[in-house]
Design a protein around this nucleic acid. Structure first.
Lengths: 201, 201
DNA sequence: CGCTACCTTGACCGATCGGTCAGATCCTGC
DNA sequence: GCAGGATCTGACCGATCGGTCAAGGTAGCG
């Protein structure tokens, strides 16, 4: 009888499995992660995984759905009334969401194309596309699209795969990463003319 | 020596298989790509794949080794004598290499962390780390590391996974992408103070 | 013609995949 | 204490995985 585990035994096991699955999906990929690995990593049997989740795909959906929903919320909030101030706030909130949900972001952004048949991935893809349209706005020059793609993919890479390439020296803390991203990404995305005004803050 | 049509039956089959494998590895991931898929996609049998390549991993190595070697070459050339002009040229050449070898880049950069045990991936990782050190130079602020990570990962994302998120409108041509990347990345990587001088060209 | 070397393939192997199912165990309300 | 649902697990299933192997086809060459 664990103390803090007053928590409904049901939800606890499900959460542990979900967390273990998310970590594995993000670090080695959905296809390369077996139910057995997830079970071992969480301290349960493979059968238990399939007791709590109907299938491997259902487990993926449970793991990343909250992240997708929050991205959709933030996006809807911006689309409700778009203006430069809200646009900047959109960028800031997306950065924060990516930090919190980095594993989920890795799954639906980086691994997305190979999982396109899953409904939850399709939902995430649609949201990303709307985000792209929102950020690039009416300007549809190739350069603007490239700026958006680099910013989005670059942040996703940095927060997951990219960490591997800097492990010899100390890892920057999340706070340091957040601060740097809040500086670099708006600078990258801002219409060149607006850079200085945005700086003035 | 036959002309290219006459082409050595041996080398032709091997090349076709290598190309098919590279496309699959980049689009759905190494782990999710089976030898059967590769064989089907290239019009051979699974046994033929294993006749030309000793194993799935040997096939991966053959497919991405040329790209890794070229990155190493470009990097060595810069390290031989580093100065701002060479640094800018390094960035330009890396961008061009990423365009030509986008599938290989996706494999060892994006999928790299989950394939770290393979020698060819370890080689690529080491090269990327040296590249990071070269670009960030002695400046080791978190912000500079973030700039590098975003630029590298962003370009890799844009050239592979990212294409999925823009398929409804026409895809930019490679020339357009190259031009945009040559504008955006140096601007992102340049020491803020040097931005204007770099602009002056 | 046969000989040889190369290329290709289907049959096959053990391991592991995602998933099913019947039971063992545990917890709870009466 | 006991009944009954919730939780957990091992045994098992068909499919597919990476990889082996020996036989068959096909050219060049005497």
């Amino acid at each position: 009888m664990p103390t803090d585990a007053k928590a409904p035994a049901r939800a606890r096991a499900a959460d542990e499995l979900k967390q273990a699955a998310l970590e594995q999906f993000a670090s080695v990929g959905f296809a390369a992660t077996s139910l057995q690995h997830i079970a071992d990593h969480a301290g349960y049997s493979k059968s238990s995984v399939l007791y709590h989740y109907a299938s491997k795909e259902a487990l993926l959906e449970s793991a990343i759905e909250p992240a997708v929903s929050q991205f959709e919320e933030v996006l809807e909030d911006y689309l409700a009334g778009r203006d430069p101030v809200r646009r900047r706030r959109l960028v800031d909130r997306v950065i924060d969401l990516m930090l919190v949900h980095r594993e989920a972001v890795h799954v639906f952004l980086i691994q997305g194309p190979s999982l396109a048949e899953l409904p939850i991935i399709a939902r995430a893809d649609a949201a990303v596309r709307r985000l792209a349209a929102a950020i690039c706005d009416e300007r549809e020059s190739v350069e603007d699209q490239v700026r958006f793609g680099v910013a989005l993919g670059g942040a996703a890479f940095l927060l997951t795969a990219g960490r591997t390439f800097a492990d010899d020296r100390a890892q920057p803390s999340d706070d340091e990463l957040r601060a740097a991203l809040h500086t670099v990404l708006p600078e990258l995305l801002a219409p060149p003319a607006a850079t200085r005004t945005a700086d003035a803050e």
